[in-house]
């Protein structure tokens, strides 16, 4: 969805300061990410076969220095959102109002306190070019009473909860423009 229909980025614009950025904060899910990057031409598909082997640029957590198209190195949880807020603020400081910043986090990852610093800060500083995709697969040990969207809303975000497998719902939520940062809670439940 993101790379097909939403993000304005390509291998030719991977270093363009005006590009959209996708930050995979929950870095433990890179296999699909690598496959998409290969399908979109950011990296040679032949590299995929070496995944996690010594000398391969592709590990269990992505490294921006090693993999073209990867915006941040991630793995330790709770870092992508702070970086995403800074990236969005950096673009604003340079008067770049078009590029958008998307950060994908997990519901379990939201337990990290660093995320709550970043969520509150983004709401206060009002960075509308920032969108968080929170994959809610019910993996947070103690859950989110009232729902994850509420956690963002109280900090001044626009928040929408969608079926994480419904492409049309996702597309509508991810492309909507708001005056505040945008949270899209993508619910994934086993059938």
């Amino acid at each position: 969805m993101l790379y097909d229909r939403v993000l304005n980025v390509s291998p030719d614009t991977a270093d363009d300061p005006g590009r959209d950025r996708f930050l995979l904060s929950k870095g433990h899910g890179p296999m699909a990410f690598y496959a998409v990057l290969a399908a979109k031409g950011f990296l040679d598909p032949a590299v995929l076969d070496g995944w996690t082997t010594f000398g391969s640029p592709l590990g269990q957590h992505p490294d921006r220095v090693l993999v073209p198209g990867v915006e941040i190195g991630s793995g330790s949880l709770g870092h992508g959102l702070g970086l995403g807020v800074g990236t969005a603020l950096g673009l604003r400081a340079q008067h770049r109002t078009t590029p958008r910043v998307f950060v994908l986090v997990g519901d379990g990852e939201l337990d990290e306190g660093s995320n709550h610093e970043a969520i509150a800060l983004a709401g206060r500083l009002c960075v509308p070019n920032l969108t968080v995709i929170a994959v809610d697969n019910g993996s947070a040990s103690h859950g989110w009473p009232g729902g994850i969207a509420r956690r963002f809303e109280v900090e001044g975000w626009h928040a929408t909860t969608v079926d994480g497998r419904d492409h049309d719902q996702l597309y509508a939520a991810l492309t909507a423009r708001h005056d505040s940062p945008n949270a899209v809670v993508a619910t994934i439940r086993e059938a």
């Binding site: 300061p17 915006e71 941040i72 709770g78 870092h79 959102l81 702070g82 970086l83 995403g84 807020v85 800074g86 990236t87 969005a88 603020l89 950096g90 673009l91 604003r92 400081a93 340079q94 306190g113 660093s114 610093e117 970043a118 509150a120 800060l121 206060r124 500083l125």
Partner: peptide, 26 residues
């Protein structure tokens, strides 16, 4: 105002934001 940022008492965000700013070339 957009280049002097006070994040409040949020030191993890302070460094994270700095990292993000640097990623954009600042």
């Amino acid at each position: 105002p957009h280049r002097v940022l006070n994040v409040g008492i949020r030191e993890q965000a302070m460094i994270g934001v700095a990292g993000g700013l640097a990623l954009t070339g600042l």
